[in-house]
């Protein structure tokens, strides 16, 4: 589904990604872990096409096409979804109105009829139950006055309603208490399916107690330096990141 080859990117003139290789297949859940400043969020934003990031070399192929050439809204319409670390507020635009417009943009792209009011209500009701947010939040402006946890759950609501092929979660667990974390994880698990893939970007292992990854990668200084299964995440939780750094420098010395 997604193949990243030797991807390099910079922001404001600073090189952040220094040659990332990653392959994500349908049905996979990948966790990308790493210390602060290693480039995790940069990778997520570059894949979604944030204008602040510049790709300097390398490729990313999504569903057999060059992803990096496409405008952000076209990437989204083709099924790439980014759950934001810091969801923004859109004053005056109600959550439901925004979601309906986003859903219809996707439907139009797929040659489908716009969603009617009854169908849309059904979709919303089904999904707000899963993410456990209050019906009233749908009528409020997008993220305005939402608590940190509500914002993150709202991201998962968007994920479920828009139903993409590839979901990238950028530090979705940050700032969540354990109950909210469980709800967010159950939303993601609900989304999980054989024809969909998930990339979870996280600093901590704790989210991975609830979303079991198939693969775990360690991103450090702009490169994926170690990959493994979920045992790797547990090892990182227990030992931190320094031992990998040590391992790497030993490797360099040899």
């Amino acid at each position: 589904m997604l193949t990243i080859t030797d991807l390099k990117a910079s922001v404001a003139g600073n090189d952040i990604l220094k040659g990332v290789n990653l392959s994500v297949n349908e049905g996979d859940v990948h966790a990308i872990m790493g210390p602060n400043g290693s480039g995790k969020s940069t990778l997520a934003n570059v894949l979604a096409g944030h204008p602040a990031y510049t790709v300097t070399s390398g490729t990313a192929t999504y569903k057999g096409e060059n992803l990096l050439d496409k405008e952000p809204h076209l990437r989204a319409r083709e099924g790439l979804f980014l759950a934001f670390q810091h969801p923004v507020e859109i004053p005056g635009v109600t959550n439901a109105y925004f979601l309906k417009n986003a859903l219809n943009a996707l439907r139009e792209h797929n040659g489908e009829e716009p969603v009617d009011a009854v169908e849309f209500r059904t979709i919303l009701e089904e999904n707000i139950r899963i993410v456990g947010i209050d019906n009233a939040l749908l009528k409020r402006p997008v993220n305005e006055g939402f608590s940190g946890g509500e914002k993150k759950r709202n991201e998962i609501l968007q994920l479920l309603v828009l139903n993409p092929a590839l979901a990238i979660l950028d530090e979705t667990d940050s700032g969540l208490d354990i109950d909210a974390l469980k709800i967010v994880a159950s939303g993601v698990n609900h989304f999980r399916a054989d024809d969909r893939a998930v990339v979870v970007v996280t600093h901590y292992q704790r989210l991975l107690n609830y979303i079991e990854p198939d693969f775990v990668h360690v991103l450090m200084d702009g490169r994926i330096v170690k990959s493994g299964d979920r045992m790797l995440a547990q090892e990182l939780e227990a030992r931190g990141y320094d031992w990998i750094r040590d391992e790497l420098s030993e490797g360099d010395a040899a």
Partner: peptide, 22 residues
């Protein structure tokens, strides 16, 4: 804000229009 709306599939012109309307 613009990137957020575009990331949800809304084209840039409609994204501006939505922010302004809001």
């Amino acid at each position: 804000q613009l990137f957020f709306l575009q990331q949800r599939g809304i084209n840039p012109e409609d994204a501006v229009s939505m922010i302004v309307n809001g």
